[in-house]
Each structure stands twice: as C-alpha cells, then as structure tokens.
Design a protein around this nucleic acid. Structure first.
Lengths: 234, 234
DNA sequence: CGTACCTTTGATGTGAATCAAGAGTAGTGG
DNA sequence: CCACTACTCTTGATTCACATCAAAGGTACG
C-alpha cells in the first residue's frame, strides 16, 4: 500500500472552511461542525454504505475517490457519480426519511469526513445564509442529474463519450484547440458512468482516434481539436 | 374550448396554504407570498418557457397538467416529468444562475401560479422551517430523478412500463389484488416519459394484456393481479 | 362527417450488448 | 528480478431489444 493513507493529523476546520457548502461560515460555526465530524477511512473496494441502508449524516471526500452506483441482479452495476476531493454526497438523504438509493464504494484508499445531521439542522435553524448554500448545492446536483437524463435519453454512445471528454477540459471557451486530459479512474468505471459497456467505450475511443480527433495512451487522452470534436455528431 | 378555464376568482391564500411547501406557514407569511403571485393561464400546447430561458421564480399547478421535456433536433422530444395540480416546478433554478434545462408546455388548458424569487428568499431569510421544507422538497425531487436514472439504466422497456403502472396504484401494500387506474395523459406522452416509442409502449400493453396481467381500454388500465405484475421480470 | 391526431400492427433495420478470446499491465511473492 | 496471478483493456463475431418505417384502424372534435 502506498503513502496515500497518511496518518498525519488533519486540520478539520481548514478542510471544512474550504468546502463550497461551508466556506462562508464564521469560525465558531465551523467549530460547532467540527465536533460533529467523524473521520472515516475507506479502503479501495470497501463499501461505505449499501443501497437500502438508513442514512446517517452526509459525507465529504477529503482525499481519494468514491463512486456512487446502483447494484444490479446480474453482477453488473451502474455508476451514477464519481466523487473526488472536496465533493460531498448524501446531503439529500438527511432531509428525507428514506434509505440510500445507491451504494458508495471507495475507488482508491480514501479519507472522508462524516457529518451528523443534528449539527447541520442546528446550523440551518440559525443561519439563513447556510440554508441558501445548502439549497444551491442541492439545486446544482438536481441540475446535473437532469442533464444526465437528457444525455442518456437522446444522445448516442459516441456523443456521450465526446460530451464527457469535453466536460473534462478546463474552460473550453478560449482559443486553445488542443488539450491533454487524464481519465480520473479506470475505463470500466467511466464506461458504466456513461451507461455503456467497456467494449463499447473501447471501440469508441478507437474510432475517435482513428479519425484523428483524439489520442489515447492509457489514461492520458489528447484532444487534438476541441472544436472539431465538439461538432462531432454521428 | 371547454369550461376548464373558469373565470371565477381564485382564493390564492387557500391554494398556497394547501401546498406541501407552504402548508406550515403562518397566515401573514402566506399573505406576503400572495402579493408576489401572478396567475398564469396556459392553453393546451402552449409553451410556458423554452429550454434556455432565464428563470423567473417558480410555478405551481393549480389545475390542469404541464409537461417538462427536452427538445431534440429530430422533432422528437423526451418528457422528463408530467405535473398535475398541487405540484410545483422550477424551484431549483431560483438558486442557480442558469437557464432552464427543459421546456414547459401545457398538456391541457391549465392555470398556474408564478411565484417570484424575491419573496421566497425573504421567507427563507426569516423562517428556518420554511428552509427545511424547501430542502425536503428538492431532496425528494433529487431522489426521484435518481430513481429515474436507475430505471432507464438497468430495466428493460417492459419493466419500466410495469414499474410505472405499479407507481400509479394507490397504496399497493394491502391485500387488494386488483386495481383500476386511469392514465393521466396520452400514451404518446407516457411513452416518452418512459423513454420508449409509442409503438413499443403499445406492443408492451398488448403483451401484458395477452398474458392476462392487465386489461387495457383506452386510458383505463385494469391491473388484474398486482402481485403477479410485481413479479414480472423478463 | 371530415380532418387531424392518436393508437395499433406488421416488416425491417440497427446500435449497442453479449459472448469469446487474446493482449496488455499491475501488483505479489519467491 | 522474474514468474504468477489477477485484472483491465482490446478486438472480432454474433445476437437482440428496441427503433424506425410504413400503413391501416380509432377517436375526438370542429
């Protein structure tokens, strides 16, 4: 095992205050949350919670990578989201008395913070600005899920892949024609996230690179011409 | 045009106070909202907003029926949600500076209330309980979208139809084996909501009724045996 | 009672999954 | 350092669920 799992002491207030959700809180509010945090180490392949488990607060990724997915009878699974540092999940379940609709599993050895619901509710009670942030966070999540539904429903597999690659590009506005990106995880997982099989993803990468649109070398993808790729429509 | 579009005066406070979102508000709070409401009549087939329009508050269906959908280049479209009386939409967009990701169109002549964002933000500022309701509402929406993604990703077309029918059953817990339900709108629209073509939906209804699982007569569907239908897995 | 739109039914097509081997690529342990 | 095991990724052949195309009923409504 690598040096990913440092045993150094964490500066929890600093971590919390840098999260989008919490970044406008006063130091005393951060302190209140800190006392309700639990560190949670998650090994690669380890399950954080199963679909159907009762929710217990929400989680923030400090370092590492976590996937949210649906299990499926035939062993295959559908990845809903891949989460990296600073991202959080499970907030919505705090506000509903429902079990988790997905399971969460470490893609690599990771460190999470688990934040209990009680202090969050207390914050909500006191700080309307915090409520605004929380609402904005959920709204954003809702929006991106709606986008996903659109993508799955009316774009072909190749279009989904192209869309994914373009999303990975740092601000695609500028005149830059070429980009280098690194896939955040295995192609298997990405395939599932895009709702296709590994075989299909592989073939699409092959085709795109045969057309000179991209270059593929392991997890390194070179986008030769962003604009030409963007105009890609089979 | 029928007598669906009454011109009777509306009791807006009463309508508002019966919405899940607002039902715990004090009369004075309701009054504050009332002044920010606009009535909006929407004819069958009329567009309320287009995908890409800048959001302006959110909407509540008083009576009638509205669909939210993505447009698509080839004229076909993908229905995301079908909304009836007491349901609201567009809340999430208030908290984000983004255009609507879908368009909204009347399925029948309808009456909506449009509620501006400013008074909602003021309520949020003052009443933590209202914030809780708002968060619960968005969480619920998020949850059902996640369910949709699961459904689209790993269930066959027939399973999606069966799932839809079972959802329409009022409390399916009890021993009742048989149910009568009425489809809320045309089969075309339902097909799109379930991500299939009208032809495929028609064939599935045909098959299910050939197997004696359901009876179909126009929009009236009889579920002969809820349990047998629930166990349906091709 | 006719026009316009839903819905059904049949024949055919196709995008992506599945099945089936191989070819890397990594971590493991001697 | 090299085999050993275990994945992950690629490539090809085949299949299948569902869409598409086409045309005929139905149904609603002006």
């Amino acid at each position: 095992m690598h040096e990913t799992m440092h045993e150094t002491k964490l500066d929890i207030p600093q971590i919390l205050s840098r999260l989008p959700l919490f970044q406008e809180l006063a130091p005393e509010q951060i302190a209140a949350l800190e006392s309700a945090c639990r560190e949670r180490r998650l090994a690669k392949g380890e399950m954080l919670f199963q679909k159907g488990d009762p929710p217990k607060g929400f989680f923030v990724v400090v370092f590492g990578q976590v996937k949210l997915a649906f299990p499926s009878s035939q062993g295959n699974e559908k990845v809903v989201q891949i989460l990296g540092p600073r991202q959080s999940f499970g907030e919505a379940m705090m506000f509903m008395d429902r079990p988790y609709p997905v399971f969460a599993e470490g893609l690599v050895d990771s460190l999470l913070l688990q934040i209990g619901s009680v202090p969050v509710f207390e914050l909500l009670q006191r700080d309307p600005m915090f409520a605004r942030h929380m609402l904005a966070g959920l709204s954003l999540r809702l929006h991106s899920l709606v986008q996903d539904v659109e993508t799955y429903s009316l774009r072909s597999s190749a279009q989904r892949v192209v869309g994914y690659l373009l999303q990975q590009c740092p601000q695609s506005k500028s005149g830059e024609a070429s980009f280098d990106i690194s896939l955040p995880t295995s192609k298997q997982v990405i395939a599932s996230r895009l709702n296709l099989t590994p075989e299909t993803l592989s073939r699409i990468f092959h085709d795109l690179s045969a057309n000179g649109l991209i270059g593929v070398s392991g997890k390194q993808i070179t986008i030769n011409d962003v604009n030409r790729l963007r105009e890609f429509d089979l």
